[in-house]
Design a protein around this nucleic acid. Structure first.
Lengths: 284, 284
DNA sequence: CCAAAAGTGTTCAATGTACACCCATGA
DNA sequence: TCATGGGTGTACATTGAACACTTTTGG
């Protein structure tokens, strides 16, 4: 508000900048990688692509690409890093109109890419159930977290009291290129913890949804059943989490049952109090 | 555990890498900036340096520098980004033996540096009270958060219920170079929220400390007095936060008073349950 | 003895959890 | 009218905030 991004320039400053040579530094390549997360039929998925170039040709990897530092033949410079993330992602799959994008972290170990020094800024995208990518399924696909191994599909929380044994029998089957397994693991942990204290669960849902659908998001991401009745009350007791539309969902499920109210996201970003995943078991 | 970082290379892969030209991409410069936070006499400070080069010569800025992507005349390549952060910081000020360093985020807006496209990976360092930097005080200094303005020194929490009016009269006096004011604000918010659910407060303290010293860390970072008696009990009730040394502090303060027990950090990283800054007022 | 700081006991309110129950709808 | 899922009432345990009080030390 007070000119934070527009430092004043005196004359010496201007002369310096005119003479500056941007090519003088030995640089690293900068990329963005996006861990796009969604939930399909109650199962959490991440968008992966098969590499079509060396190195690690044919391996599964996160969608990503180089940041456009300056205007060039490929197109204009990316104004900021989130723009780069959305650009590389939209080149590979259709994007939803509503989405949540946040920076996850930057990965820059010397040996993480065999070609050269690559610094990769990773983003997490949370989106409602999306159609399959345009490209044929062999090149890009939504993959369940549970087949990625390395602890990604596990639902252990940091306290370690949970003793649930409800994981599917599927062992790790897919190994990812570069350090992308770690990035996905970090993205999943980010999503799990953000559901505790923010209203982000609605980012996985269409614009209008039922409380049960919201609960199923929590259950899918945390990998654990929640107590429906108490969840319902807790959501409605959290100011600004959801807002009643006054309408009802079309059907109450496959069989019978009362029709559920439809809600839309409320204005709140943070939840007071948070919903904690250290508690609440399923009813018998 | 299963060779995550050591992808196997077939013959084609090896031929490709031999022929690869790392200079082919139009690159950005990558830097690290460190927001080093500490508490001196109950007041939280951040380490700042006066810029000695164009652009923005003479402005206060975070210590930082370019990542060494490859081995070169200046020295060997940085093995990973945290190494780069510690390197650039140790070049400018002595480092403590015990410290906590974590990545804050990456800032890459097109116009954040007038010279060229600079992608900056920011780190937060939490450290016990450190001596003044070696360089003369005009070049590097510990600056209180409260004089940085732009909301950095404010103790508003995200809920916004707090109405404390205990801020010092000092208005914003220092304006930072580039987008460093935003980075410091993000660092301060990171520290404030991490104290809620991790045991990181001990990173601001020497290896052995009293519960009162720990409470003063919280009070300094959150900018709000806490209820001493309840705080004491809550800390001891949180498993793994602190560990009793069995010894007592030298003096119970300047005047009289019982001597306090000395504790050291416990093994726990996360707090169950968290300490929340939405509550607890001071006694009359 | 008095003041000051550390640490404990206890009460009361707020919250979280479990379980019973009623409501609305389809077959 | 029965099964199914949505939604509410309520009792009980757990937690947290406030305040009174005891313990230990220096002057």
């Amino acid at each position: 508000m007070t000119g934070e991004r527009t430092p004043r320039q005196d004359d010496g400053e201007r002369r310096f900048l005119d003479a500056y040579d941007p090519g003088a530094y030995a640089p690293a390549a900068v990329t963005v990688d996006v861990a796009a997360l969604t939930i399909r039929a109650g199962v959490p998925h991440v968008l992966l692509m098969r590499r079509t170039a060396r190195p690690q040709l044919g391996w599964w990897a996160l969608p990503g690409g180089f940041v456009r530092a300056q205007d060039g033949p490929d197109g204009p410079a990316d104004p900021d890093l989130p723009d780069a993330a959305l650009r590389v992602l939209s080149q590979k799959t259709p994007l939803p109109t509503e989405l949540h994008l946040e920076q996850l972290g930057t990965y820059g170990a010397l040996d993480r890419d065999p070609r050269m020094r690559v610094i990769s800024v990773a983003y997490v995208l949370l989106a409602p159930d999306l159609p399959d990518p345009d490209t044929d399924a062999d090149r890009a696909a939504w993959i369940p977290w549970s087949v990625l191994g390395h602890g990604i599909g596990d639902s252990r929380d940091r306290g370690g009291h949970g003793g649930g044994d409800d994981d599917r029998g599927g062992r790790a089957e897919i190994e990812l290129a570069f350090d992308h397994a770690r990035i996905v693991a970090d993205a999943v942990e980010r999503a799990r913890s953000k559901l505790e204290y923010t209203a982000l669960a609605t980012a996985f849902l269409p614009p209008e949804f039922t409380i049960t659908a919201l609960r199923e998001v929590y259950e899918a991401v945390w990998g654990r059943p929640l107590h429906g009745a108490n969840f319902h009350r807790k959501i409605l007791a959290t100011p600004g989490f959801v807002e009643d539309t006054g309408r009802l969902a079309d059907r109450g499920g496959s069989g019978g049952g009362r029709r559920a109210r439809l809600y839309r996201p409320g204005g709140a970003a943070f939840l007071h109090p948070p919903l904690l995943r250290g508690a609440q078991s399923a009813p018998a």
